[in-house]
């Protein structure tokens, strides 16, 4: 690990009037790593991505991208990075090919190279048949895959993706991730902001952000180890009643409603028997109760929930 980090962020801070959107953030990303920025809406993910991409100036702190200081020389950094904003940023009134050509030209990619890369990228995402179609007429998933194609046409060293798979169908998401993984072999560094925690689990390392601050930064597995107490899943036809019955029980730290029931964080797995008794006393219907392995989502809820209690 003597190689310098591909992305080095130190004390990054950005204020909007009274709001501090990003507050003294520091992390580093190794070459060939997929690094995830995870957090609820308003955590500052987009602001961080914009500062990494050199399109927004931080109030304090530094961003070094492959040895280039993004804050002091954003134009130099832009030649070797690619940024995919949250909102679809391509021209809907241009065709797939025209969009690709536009971005290739802006990065000075010669025609032959452009054709070769476009062909490979479009084939990987199943977009070959749509090259003549207007971008505005593509489905949500195809738009994002076109966005990825355009942002990879100049073979960047670092790829910054801001919630790239929001509103994308599962098949396109799978294509998307397959393309991302294939980049890692070429030594490309990927920073991805995501609200999907199942996607977060695919990252090598995660930074958990809350209100502009870094809460935790580690591999998904290590983060789960750090989770205090035990996670208990209760399947129930009436999750709200389960929540109100248990949220004030001793040892219960957080209660989160999930699709078909409730996830609880308790200080000790031994409390399950107490919880069962409590539900029976109150006559709350439930089908199943068991300790489960936490997902990143649970972890996040546990960490943020406890923080809220502390505050």
């Amino acid at each position: 690990m003597t190689e310098p980090a591909a992305v080095e962020v130190a004390s990054l801070t950005k204020r909007f009037a009274a709001l501090t959107a990003v507050d003294g953030l520091s992390f580093s990303v190794a070459r060939g790593e997929i690094f995830g920025l995870v957090g609820p809406d308003g955590a500052g993910k987009t602001t961080v991505m914009r500062m990494l991409a050199g399109v927004m100036r931080p109030d304090a702190g530094t961003v070094i991208l492959d040895g280039v200081d993004v804050v002091s020389d954003p134009e130099l950094a832009k030649r070797h990075l690619s940024y995919m904003p949250q909102r679809f940023g391509l021209y809907e009134d241009l065709t797939v090919d025209e969009n690709i050509r536009f971005y290739a030209d802006l990065f000075g990619i010669a025609r032959g190279l452009r054709e070769e890369r476009a062909k490979r990228l479009l084939a990987a995402s199943g977009m070959e048949p749509f090259r003549g179609r207007l971008a505005g007429k593509l489905s949500g998933g195809m738009k994002q895959k076109l966005g990825l194609t355009c942002s990879l046409i100049h073979a960047p060293k670092a790829v910054l993706l801001d919630e790239p798979t929001t509103g994308v169908d599962p098949v396109s998401r799978r294509d998307f991730w397959r393309i991302l993984y294939s980049l890692l072999g070429e030594g490309v560094t990927i920073v991805i902001a995501t609200a999907y925690l199942d996607e977060a689990e695919r990252c090598h390392r995660l930074a958990l952000l809350d209100r502009g601050r870094l809460i935790q930064c580690d591999t998904p597995a290590a983060l789960k180890q750090k989770m205090p107490g035990a996670l208990v899943a209760i399947a129930s036809p009436d999750p709200r009643r389960v929540r109100s019955a248990l949220e004030d029980e001793p040892g219960v730290q957080t209660v989160v409603l999930v699709g078909d029931g409730v996830h609880l964080v308790v200080d000790d797995a031994g409390r399950i028997a107490e919880l069962e008794r409590r539900l029976a006393d109150q006559g709350v219907p439930y089908e199943h109760i068991a300790r489960v392995t936490p997902s990143v989502e649970d972890l996040f809820a546990a960490l943020l929930g406890r923080k809220a209690e502390d505050g």
Partner: peptide, 13 residues
């Protein structure tokens, strides 16, 4: 149209 964010992230002057 939301295309500015991407445009300013390229090396165009």
């Amino acid at each position: 149209r939301g295309t500015m964010e991407l445009l300013v992230s390229t090396p165009v002057t």
